[in-house]
Design a protein around this nucleic acid. Structure first.
Lengths: 187, 187
DNA sequence: GTCTATAGCTTGATAGAC
DNA sequence: GTCTATCAAGCTATAGAC
């Protein structure tokens, strides 16, 4: 296999940056091509179904990163619950660039036509709830309370990203992440 | 003045519905025209600067509704703090159609190019924080604690809208609004 | 696997009749 | 104040050479 001009992981990261900032409709193939250094036609060689396939690949790529760095950390039986939570939150902080980067799921949930990403978004969010339910159980919460708290954590993360961006103050996101540790350790 | 085919308030409500669901880029002039029953050229008679002017008019229209139904309610000195809060939250529930309607500020914060709406979004969110800071003061909180809680309320509202939509469960939004009452009355 | 070139359509916006 | 007609530019996507 001859070397490609740009490797897929690097490409998907470039796509993600565009999609997060501009949304699905707001990102053009011209911009996607420019981000890779390739021409539009070359993108179609790698993603025959076009922009939609690129967006789905980006979503799956982010999901894989989250699985490795967030889910696997939160459920790592070799660590104490406190360590799992601390390390998981550190990864989340990195994922959203300390509150400076919007969430891809939010960006893709706004779109024209019937939303072909709805199922993927639903799956991803359920995944986040499962991960935090798991850490709640590690803190000896009941299943129902653990799930309730997990949903609140997701609300806090998503909401603080929105508000941080709206008020132009990433510290709101940082403070929210710090408070999440308290939510689990205060009881 | 001869009667117009469609009145401005009705028009702006139709625009708002489109913009909230599809975002700024995802909403076309063809759709905006169709929503009014007018032709594209007729829209330009009312909004000479085009789509951007329509979007800004929608934002101002929503802000006016919020000022009347949320801010004025939360700060109504003729009511007890409990009544103000209860009535204000009822209006918020209506604004977001019981969790079934996305927030316009979120929709407009995702967009291509430099975001011309950033300042308006920032102003609107600051407005929400001020309104809830005010109700916090009415519950005898200190200025700093009242503002802190106000930001958390905004996070809860915005976050629960995102998560309700993502998990396809508007009850998450409803529950969040109910909990906000507790946040203020439990201390 | 990347390119040039282009098809076919939709976009936001305007001119001018009524 | 609304319309028909139209524009130039941008869009997604494809054909085919190398």
């Amino acid at each position: 296999m001859r070397p490609q001009k740009i490797e897929e992981p690097e490409m998907l990261n470039g796509f993600a940056k565009l999609f997060r900032e501009k949304g699905y409709e707001g990102t053009s193939l011209a911009e996607l091509a420019e981000a890779t250094g390739l021409k539009k036609a070359s993108l179609y060689h790698r993603f025959p179904k076009g922009k939609e396939e690129m967006a789905k690949a980006v979503l799956l790529n982010v999901n894989n990163w989250v699985e490795e760095h967030v889910f696997n950390t939160l459920t790592n039986q070799l660590l104490t619950p406190e360590e799992r939570l601390k390390n998981g939150l550190r990864s989340i902080k990195k994922l959203y660039d300390d509150g400076n980067t919007p969430c891809l799921l939010q960006a893709f949930s706004i779109q024209s036509g019937i939303n072909v990403f709805n199922q993927l978004i639903n799956d991803s969010m359920s995944y986040w709830v499962d991960a935090f339910t798991n850490i709640g159980l590690a803190f000896d919460l009941s299943q129902s309370v653990a799930k309730e708290k997990a949903i609140q954590v997701l609300i806090d993360i998503q909401g603080s990203l929105v508000v941080s961006r709206g008020l132009n103050n990433p510290n709101i996101f940082i403070n929210t992440l710090n408070n999440i540790e308290v939510i689990y350790t205060k009881n």
